[in-house]
Design a protein around this nucleic acid. Structure first.
Length: 258
DNA sequence: GAGGTTGTTTAGAA
DNA sequence: CTTCTAAACAACCT
């Protein structure tokens, strides 16, 4: 589920539901997702708070209130969403925040990350840690700054949240495929034209994904075929290469991305 | 049982 | 110093 576009989709939806809502009750179904406090402290600290406008930083979802903020990181399988009426219980339900109208829920199968409570802006920064500029709306100057002297490989650099915030494994493969750039290239080896192409492709594909509220799985995108057993390139049908960058699955077309 | 997965952090090697 | 690798976290799928 969660990369920039997915998180942005959650934020956009929650921004129509959450502002002004009052927390009346907390149901901690699995305390393991509370990362910097225990259930008792979390309940005591949050009941009576009123939500304001949700925000996003990279893959972090920020849920501010008139008091402390809830910081949500969905890991690989998390999802934060609001409902009017309680849905049928599911095994991956972790937290239910009862509101004066409806519920805010957090579901997460694997629990790789979770929810932090931040008392003020400094605590927010401490918990989130250093983040590069957000991939959505990144400028050419920012991209050049992080790339021109880096000897790291392209894909690994793009996925480093301290360098660029928001890109995950799936979108990074997609952007590099659309821009016809090999993920193993050294970042500093890109020409000005290639960097401009990378930036334009990144912004165009991210905007499309954000509009849909999730990463598209279109047949003319790499995302549409990457989970097939024997995928061919959607552009030229050449069998795609499966590799590994920084321990992560990496897929590219040996013809288009040489 | 083995091996894989949309994320991040850590230890240790090169 | 920088960069890379493997493993860990956890839970489910094939």
């Amino acid at each position: 589920m969660p990369e920039l576009a997915d998180i942005e989709g959650m934020r956009r939806t929650l921004s129509t539901q959450l502002p002004g809502r009052l927390i009346t009750e907390i149901e901690v179904l699995d305390a393991a997702i509370l990362r910097n406090c225990d259930s008792v402290h979390f309940v005591r600290a949050t009941i009576g708070l009123r939500f304001s406008e949700p925000a996003r930083r990279g893959k972090w979802l920020l849920l501010p209130t008139d008091g402390p903020s809830l910081l949500v990181h969905c890991g690989m399988t998390g999802r934060a969403y609001a409902v009017d009426t309680p849905p049928v219980a599911r095994p991956d339900d972790r937290l239910v925040i009862q509101l004066d109208k409806g519920q805010l829920r957090y579901a997460d199968r694997r629990k790789l990350r979770g929810i932090w409570l931040a008392t003020d802006a400094d605590a927010v920064d401490d918990i989130i840690g250093p983040l590069g500029p957000d991939a959505l709306g990144m400028t050419y100057r920012e991209l050049t700054n992080v790339m021109q002297y880096s000897s790291r490989r392209l894909k690994v650099l793009l996925m480093d949240q301290r360098v660029i915030a928001g890109l995950g494994n799936t979108m990074t493969d997609e952007i590099l495929w659309q821009a016809r750039l090999n993920p193993e290239r050294q970042a500093s080896s890109l020409t000005v034209a290639e960097r401009r192409r990378l930036l334009q492709t990144m912004q165009r594909s991210l905007r499309t994904a954000v509009q849909q509220g999730h990463i598209p799985r279109a047949s003319d995108w790499l995302t549409g075929v990457r989970d097939e057993p024997d995928p061919g390139c959607p552009r030229c049908t050449t069998p795609l290469i499966h590799g590994r960058s920084h321990g992560r699955r990496t897929i590219w077309c040996p013809h288009c991305q040489g």
